[in-house]
Design a protein around this nucleic acid. Structure first.
Lengths: 190, 190
DNA sequence: CTTCAAATGTGATGTATGTCACACGGCTAC
DNA sequence: GTAGCCGTGTGACATACATCACATTTGAAG
């Protein structure tokens, strides 16, 4: 499927846009291909865009002072990714985004999103819905973090996103779960 | 200050509404007083409302199978609270909300929020902004959870919300930080 | 096919935090 | 005033997980 079709189908699940409106909406996006391992947002950068994944898999992550990595999100097709804190508040990135596999994305500037939200009520409705979904999911993840042990969280993750098991190495899964790769390895061996 | 004024000032920071628009918006809210300890949303209930705090302090929390409590949020004046997952998806509450102190709140049905968002573009803009802020804050908290130890998280919390220190007992702070009250107690004693 | 780096497994040991048990002080209700 | 509960402190012990070190496997590049 075309990138345009993928985005159109994604939006149509929530907001009703006429073809003209969608064409106008879509005209603000650009498309780009990235290779496995390539960086999209690097900590310290200015952040101008948010990214809609067409194909492949991204990760957004934080690196602490000890160079330890914590993964905030894996982004599969039809997921959105950016450093939203930096993007909305126009501050330097503290989050990184890069490619776990080769990937194609559509991207949109912060200013254009705000402009489109202002011009098209339905678009603002869509973005409200999207943020809401992210908010609720993050709250659930936070609760699971406080409440459940690593094994449970690992099994929940794979139940929710079985495709990750094949695409994402275990050290990254560990960085998502917030444990060391050794501990994750020992869950089923030893 | 009047409840109406407090809400108006709060909205005006983000969205521009005419006086007529705000009056119409406000007409969908009702006001209610609660006493210290009183429940507002109980796990298993149907959730019809979200709540805007005028005075006092609420908490939203999850109780697990071992009856251990985890606090998602303290809600001080001008904060919003509900079980948003249940509210948006029309499912039974899994989260509880109750009063840490006597409290006054304004409340709004889910249906009225959606209606108002639909009727007034600026209102939808406001709610998108609000959700966005919650999303970013929750992401930060999740990262802090993975990255920082209890002592650091405790001090960050008190730096961000010094008023909590006087209002909220330490066992609740511990439930927010995701540690046992004993561990929190031992941070500065022993 | 060979080489090298990345991913993964695993043992030994340290540490932060949980759990259980009990003590104590301060409020509140009668 | 006193009985009882809530919030808090603290000791002893258990446990999940981190860390460090090294071995093994796998997969990609030449």
């Amino acid at each position: 499927m075309e990138a345009k079709e993928i985005l159109k189908t994604h939006i149509a699940k929530i907001a009703v846009l006429t073809d003209e409106q969608f064409d106008y909406f879509f005209s603000h996006f650009k498309k780009k291909s990235f290779q496995k391992g390539q960086a999209i947002i690097t900590s310290g950068d200015q952040v101008d865009y948010e990214y809609f994944v067409i194909s492949g898999c991204l990760k957004s992550f934080y690196i602490n002072d000890d160079l330890k990595m914590f993964i905030l999100q894996f982004a599969m097709p039809t997921w959105w990714a950016s450093d939203y804190n930096a993007l909305y508040n126009q501050t330097k990135a503290t989050i990184n985004v890069d490619c776990i596999t080769d990937a194609e994305v559509l991207y949109l500037t912060n200013a254009d999103r705000e402009k489109l939200c202002n011009e098209l009520h339905n678009v603002e409705n869509f973005f409200r819905w999207r943020t809401n979904k992210g908010y609720i999911a993050t709250q659930k993840r936070l609760l699971s973090f406080m409440n459940n042990n690593v094994k449970y969280r690992y099994e929940e993750l794979l139940k929710l996103y079985p495709e990750l098991y094949n695409i994402v190495p275990k050290n990254l899964i560990a960085a998502y779960l917030g444990v060391s790769r050794e501990t994750l390895s020992r869950l089923y061996n030893t």
